[in-house]
Amino acid sequence: MVSVLILEEYTVKILIQVIVSFFVFIVDVVYGDRSYARFYVLETIARVPYFSYLSVLHLYETLGFWRRADLLKVHFAEAWNELHHLLIMESQGGNRYWGDRFLAQHVAVAYYWVVVLLYMLSPRYAYYLMELIEDHAYHTYDDYLKTHGEELKTQPAPQVAIDYYRDGDLYMFEEVQTATGGKFRHPQVNNLYDVFINIREDECAHVKTMEALQEPDARQSFYSPHTVFMAAKALPIDGEV
């Protein structure tokens, strides 16, 4: 019985890997070196699973099946994070052409319903799907930084990035940092290179969150960063009674 379950899990994961690899191949072929259009399409689509998770969790909450505020908080913060990635790409002209907007928006609508169904059937596989996508995003931005780093250092950071990463209300940005133990990353945003570094590190944070949420007891043991932070503040200092 155990071996059958392992085989089933292996088969499903291979299928998910094939689907993601096919999608990545298509995007790479269509967009080639049109980097900002490619990033715009990827960011439009990449935030959709968080909408799907939130929709299903709100449905469960409404029906009284299950309530956990921490997952809702973190998934909303992740969607907010991806929104700002999208706004940054738009500020760089990634959404200039109608065809790119049409493709991204229509794929996003279809993708939303696919992930809703998958999340209702198996949250673990839905999180695994997103882990692969966010991991691809991390490597995509990492490769872009290696190729265009010096050029990016000469360009100013868009205001939307400055407001999100440095000068605005940082609560939502901190809520995506689930693997830091309540020690939040507050990066510099001096130029476009810094912005892409921050986006890349955001994608890494999403990967770690998706990995954590695949643990068998994740629905009971997972807490948002600020929940962890407030719990740490409440702990007594060594030597105090």
Rank of each mutant, 00 (worst) to 15 (best):
F102K: 06
M89C: 12
L86M: 11
S55P: 01
E82Y: 02
K73G: 00
M89W: 08
R101Q: 08
E82M: 04
R96Q: 14
W98T: 10
H84V: 04
L59Q: 13
H58M: 14
H75N: 13
H58N: 12
R68Y: 06
E78A: 09
A104C: 08
H58Q: 11
G99R: 03
D100W: 04
Q105I: 00
F76H: 09
N95R: 09
E82R: 13
A79H: 02
F65V: 13
L59V: 11
L63P: 02
G64D: 10
Q105T: 05
L63V: 09
V56H: 06
T62E: 12
S55C: 09
Y97Q: 11
W98R: 10
E82P: 02
E78L: 05
H106E: 04
G94D: 04
H84Y: 13
H84E: 06
M89T: 14
R101N: 06
N81A: 15
E78I: 01
L57W: 07
L57I: 15
H106A: 02
E78S: 05
V107E: 03
H85A: 03
T62I: 11
F76P: 00
S91L: 09
E61Y: 06
F65Q: 12
A104S: 14
I88M: 08
T62G: 09
L86W: 06
Q92M: 15
V107P: 00
W80C: 00
H75F: 15
E78M: 04
G93D: 08
K73F: 02
H106C: 03
E61Q: 13
G93I: 07
W66M: 08
Q92T: 05
I88P: 00
D100R: 01
R101P: 00
F76S: 07
F76K: 09
L86V: 02
D70R: 03
H85S: 06
A69T: 13
R101C: 03
R67S: 14
Q92L: 15
L83C: 07
L71H: 07
H75M: 14
G94M: 06
V56F: 10
A69H: 11
W98K: 11
L86P: 02
G99W: 10
E90V: 04
R101W: 01
L72G: 02
Q105L: 04
H106G: 00
Y97F: 15
R68L: 06
I88F: 03
S55H: 11
A69C: 04
L83Y: 12
Y60D: 11
A104D: 03
Y97H: 15
W66I: 04
R101M: 01
G99M: 02
Q92K: 15
E82H: 08
R68W: 10
F76L: 13
L57S: 01
L71T: 05
R101I: 01
L83H: 09
G64E: 10
K73E: 14
L87C: 07
L86I: 03
M89H: 13
I88H: 04
